[in-house]
């Protein structure tokens, strides 16, 4: 997991690919999907931090996205604060909730942690649905402002391609931050927790602090992504912040390759574009989706990235012969 020259080149290649991507897309709809995919990259990097590196599967990411999205939207709509300020305060609001949620739920491990976080997601959903005075219930919030000064401003954020680059910068920043975290001493402690939590305790480290850190940071990423989503769509309702979306985050990490930096990027694009290509299957989509998840866990537990590096290794061996 060190930042070798080869890895650095790979990251640059991916970034370059994403920069030129819009010029290859002629259909507006695909640009739209790419924006969503980049937003999901941010969520998946957070999910990977807690699931892939620390080994705690949290199923609350969509709930935290909801907190970020509603946070930024309500601050903007009710107090007229500038958009950049509300977007930046969204992760902080989310962090507050994550601290309160994380402290009790990190007392349990494994499946139990997953179920407790899932329960949190349900609570968030129920509250968003029923706190109608604030959230307008099922109808949701409309007219969430775009960043910038509109069409007359220097940058027109209402344009999809422009927003794409805006989110690309955000996703790159979040990915770089994740890489920084996992390559630091902190990241090594997180991996150690995944491998043997008892040993971490025996080494005199307060594991719970590190776990809480990973959980809160992952929630902040989700909250940030939620805020970007809210300002992109200009409309949010509780429907998009359910457990199903949290499972998408889990799926993105598993499919891409957990515990890697590139994995969540590939996984995020997969979970956004895969359902589109499965559209022919219509209502069987969910069935196929579930089947892919099961087969991926059984046959490629290390994800697409793991599969690719295995294939590369095999190729090299052949060549050496």
């Amino acid at each position: 997991m060190t930042l070798t020259r080869k890895n650095g080149l790979l990251y640059l290649a991916i970034l370059a690919g994403l920069i030129v991507l819009p010029s290859f897309i002629s259909t507006k709809y695909y640009i739209h999907l790419s924006v969503l995919a980049l937003i999901w990259v941010i969520v998946a990097q957070g999910q990977n931090l807690i699931q892939g590196f620390t080994g705690y599967v949290s199923i609350a990411q969509a709930g935290f996205m909801g907190i970020g999205a509603y946070g930024t939207a309500l601050l903007g709509l009710n107090f007229g604060l500038p958009v950049w300020l509300t977007i930046l305060s969204a992760p902080l609001i989310t962090a507050l909730f994550a601290l309160v949620a994380g402290y009790p739920s990190l007392r349990v491990k494994g499946h139990y942690f997953a179920i407790v976080t899932l329960a949190f997601n349900m609570v968030i959903f129920i509250v968003l649905l029923n706190l109608t005075d604030l959230t307008n219930g099922e109808a949701g919030l409309m007219g969430i402002p775009k960043p910038g000064a509109g069409k007359d401003g220097a940058i027109n954020f209402a344009d999809r391609t422009t927003y794409y680059y805006f989110v690309l910068i955000a996703a790159t920043g979040v990915t770089a931050l994740t890489a920084l975290i996992v390559n630091s001493r902190l990241g090594r402690v997180l991996v150690a927790i995944r491998q043997n939590e008892t040993l971490v305790g025996a080494a005199g480290l307060a594991a719970w602090k590190y776990k809480l850190f990973a959980f809160v940071v992952s929630a902040m990423f989700a909250g940030f992504a939620g805020a970007l989503y809210a300002h992109y769509q200009s409309f949010i309702n509780p429907e998009i912040f359910t457990i199903a979306q949290s499972m998408d985050a889990v799926l993105a990490v598993i499919l891409g390759g957990s515990g890697t930096i590139t994995g969540p990027i590939i996984g995020a694009f997969a979970i956004v574009f895969l359902p589109e290509y499965l559209r022919f299957a219509d209502s069987f989509r969910l069935v196929i989706y579930g089947l892919i998840l099961i087969l991926a866990t059984i046959f490629m537990p290390r994800g697409i990235v793991g599969l690719a590096s295995d294939a590369l290794g095999l190729l090299k061996k052949r060549r050496a012969r």
Partner: peptide
Amino acid sequence: NAFIIALGLTMMVEG
């Protein structure tokens, strides 16, 4: 892994 299988199964059965 078993838990992720369980999530996949949930999607499948719901579908």
